[in-house]
Design a protein around this nucleic acid. Structure first.
Lengths: 231, 231
DNA sequence: GTAATGGAAATTGGATCCAATATCCAATCT
DNA sequence: AGATTGGATATTGGATCCAATTTCCATTAC
């Protein structure tokens, strides 16, 4: 390839700096799993592939390190970081706490329009037969439920946890409980919201999140066992 | 001054990279309030003061940007970021949620040793007449209560929120409710833990956090009103 | 007098060059 | 043979140099 996966320069104005675009690109690749956990990120290689010098690469790596997506050691370079099983479990517990809270704040403020919007996202999920956009649609559904709570920082935090937890898994593993169960749970959650039953909705959401975590973790454990002792 | 606030090189080995030390230094200065919200960070000036080239400065700024401590715009440089009042309030709400949760997990696992440790921190706070270490001791007390829960990620997250919220205020403002009230609340919280009364302990902790937020915010509002419209 | 314009100075962004450290492999010693 | 050492190679870290953008101020037009 010639120069530049990056050079999709917006025709009119190129507002973003090279470093920022490198950050965005690498973040996408990591969160999507294209750059899997544990892989070495060589500065020169990346620079060549993206058609830039090493400087923006280095600045990008520092930024990603602060975001927790890569780890760097002094003269050894950058590696895409992973999550231990304990970390993963904890991440889901935090999500369960914060999401049930946002739902509680949100429910009294929900209007027909909100229900409508959530319903549409569920319809999109149903249409998405190949699950190409499953992850982002799933997030969109959750986010739609919490929107009325108007807690942008919390929402951003949860989103970060969500993406960071999911990224490690190839798609088949993410849909642990099966599409149908997921869809049923989402629909039930939305129905409980419509009914205004805050307690049951919270309980259900908590189960939804923690069950997902449990399935994911058991699959992951099995996977890692099969692979022997992955360093 | 000659070269280098940084050059406290550990006599034996200098393990850390220059960039990392710049990050640590700037983070400390920002979180301690030495570099106040809104101040411009000129790369060349910093480089000269620290006795290094601009490269590690730039990498450090990118890292701090990812941590949310500074904001950068394309050719305009870096500015120490602030929190809006809404953001501040939200931060405290998140803390209230997560900390009451950790306390709930923690309490059944607490032993005499944990009580002892917390008590010692309270003693240190009492001794610290000038409140030099008030902020870190206050955090240490909270962290000590949550230690048995064994949720390192959550604890790190809360700590980050804590520091990021407090940094904007000069010390007198932080101790909004007055030393005595703070100490009384801490002592009561610890007593409730000893008594094993989870519900009351959680309630009290929540009030402790949210009241602190309310006082802080009202003081801050007054302060900003007095200053006219600070950009 | 005020607004607009042009250009110099200041500042950031990116590339290249050099130094420091780590890694790898062959030669040597036990 | 296996461990160890020494040096070549690869890779990262830091400094300097150049280009691009913004900021500021003086000049000009109205």
């Amino acid at each position: 390839m010639t120069a530049s996966i990056l050079s999709n320069n917006p025709p009119a104005l190129q507002r973003k700096t090279t470093t920022a675009r490198v950050v965005d690109l690498l973040r996408d690749q990591i969160l999507s799993g294209a750059l899997p956990e544990g892989i070495q990120l060589r500065q020169e290689k990346l620079a060549a592939e993206l058609g830039v010098s090493r400087v923006p690469i280095r600045e990008a790596l520092h930024q990603l390190e602060a975001e927790g997506l890569v780890r760097q050691e002094s003269h050894k370079g950058a590696v895409v970081s992973g999550l231990s099983i304990d970390d993963l479990e904890e991440t889901y517990e935090i999500r369960a706490r914060l999401e049930t809270w946002l739902l509680e704040l949100s429910m009294p403020l929900m209007t027909a329009q909100h229900y409508q919007q959530a319903e549409e996202i569920l319809a999109q999920i149903a249409e998405d037969q190949q699950d190409e956009n499953w992850s982002s649609l799933n997030w969109a559904f959750h986010a739609a439920l919490y929107a009325p709570a108007n807690r942008p920082q919390t929402l951003a935090l949860i989103r970060k946890l969500y993406l960071n937890a999911y990224r490690h898994f190839p798609l088949p593993i993410r849909l642990t409980g099966g599409r149908e169960r997921m869809n049923r749970e989402h629909q039930l959650l939305l129905d409980l919201c419509r009914a205004g039953d805050i307690e049951r909705a919270k309980d259900h959401l908590e189960q939804h999140i923690l069950m997902g975590a449990r399935h994911l973790i058991s699959r992951l454990k099995a996977l890692r066992r099969r692979e022997g002792a992955p360093e």
